[in-house]
Amino acid sequence: MAAIVLAFEGSAVLALAGGAQGSELYGNILALAAAVFVALYTLIGRIQRGYLSTTIYTFLTYLACFLTLLLMALASGTPLVGYGGREWLIGLGLAVLCTLMGHSLFSWCLKYLSPAYVSAVKLCEPVFSGGLAVPLFGEIPTPLQLLGAAIILGAVLLYTWAERENKTQ
């Protein structure tokens, strides 16, 4: 319980570290809403992974996402073609690295690890993406952002120890 509270506090520090206002604050509120939906999705995934293989589960999930995004793009008039090679490579990289390698790994883990632990580990995503922003975009984190990241990583480590302790008992 302490690790979950600590992880939440670290996430709050990280979210508010930039002095969020206006559209940035709105973005943080949307991110919080997304976190709630990810938690629900993780719980549903835990149930589904009890009797579906990772391959079938991820195929159905990705198909549902594809159809939903396709309908949303068509409804909003967003063009599906006409993008340059760079954008297609970025999309391919996101599809392979983030979705197939990242998301599918989380889906696989749901059969073997608790959904709470899988959710806690997902909190590391903004920390590592923030770390990648340094060499890729030259974005240097503020001391408060570094503090939030350290709290999150410490909380996930604490949670890992607690999970390991529960497994050995």
Rank of each mutant, 00 (worst) to 15 (best):
V156F: 03
T61S: 13
L144M: 14
A20V: 07
L71G: 05
G10T: 07
K111G: 15
G45C: 03
G91P: 00
G138D: 10
P143G: 02
G131L: 14
V13G: 03
T55Q: 15
A120F: 04
G102L: 02
T54G: 00
A95T: 13
S53I: 08
A2I: 15
L89G: 12
T99G: 08
A39H: 04
V156Q: 03
L113N: 00
A31R: 03
E9P: 06
L67D: 00
T142L: 09
R46L: 02
L14C: 01
L52M: 09
V38K: 04
E24T: 11
V38A: 11
Y83H: 13
G10V: 02
L74C: 00
P135T: 02
L69V: 00
G138A: 10
L32T: 12
E139N: 11
A95V: 09
Q145S: 05
V38W: 13
L52S: 11
T142C: 06
V5E: 09
L136Y: 10
L132I: 05
L113A: 08
Q21M: 07
E9N: 03
L40D: 07
S76G: 12
T58V: 13
Y83F: 14
L97Q: 09
I47V: 15
P79K: 04
A39K: 03
G45L: 08
G22D: 03
A17W: 01
L67S: 01
T42K: 03
I90N: 06
A20F: 05
A75H: 05
L94W: 09
N28F: 02
F8R: 10
L70E: 04
P126M: 05
L40P: 10
L40V: 12
A20R: 01
I151F: 04
Y41P: 06
A3I: 00
W108N: 13
I44G: 08
F137P: 09
Y62R: 03
Y26D: 14
L52D: 06
F128G: 03
G131Y: 00
Q145Y: 00
L100I: 08
K122I: 12
Q21D: 11
A12L: 14
R86Q: 08
Y112S: 09
L43S: 09
G138V: 07
W161N: 08
Q48L: 14
L25R: 08
L100W: 10
Q145T: 10
V13S: 02
N166L: 15
Q21F: 10
T168W: 04
Q48D: 12
A34M: 01
I4D: 13
G27Q: 05
L158F: 05
L105W: 08
V5F: 14
C124A: 14
Y112M: 11
E9K: 06
A120L: 15
L132T: 05
A17Q: 01
R164K: 13
A34R: 10
Y83S: 04
E139I: 12
A33I: 15
T55S: 15
T55P: 11
G50D: 06
T99I: 10
G154N: 12
A120S: 08
Y159V: 09
C98Y: 10
H103I: 06
A64Q: 12
A133Q: 09
L157D: 05
G45Y: 03
F106W: 10
G84N: 11
Y41H: 15
A73N: 02
T58W: 11
G91L: 07
P135L: 09
S53M: 10
L110F: 02
L146V: 06
G154S: 06
G22L: 03
V134I: 13
L153M: 15
L16V: 02
A155I: 06
Y26V: 13
G85R: 01
F66G: 02
A73T: 01
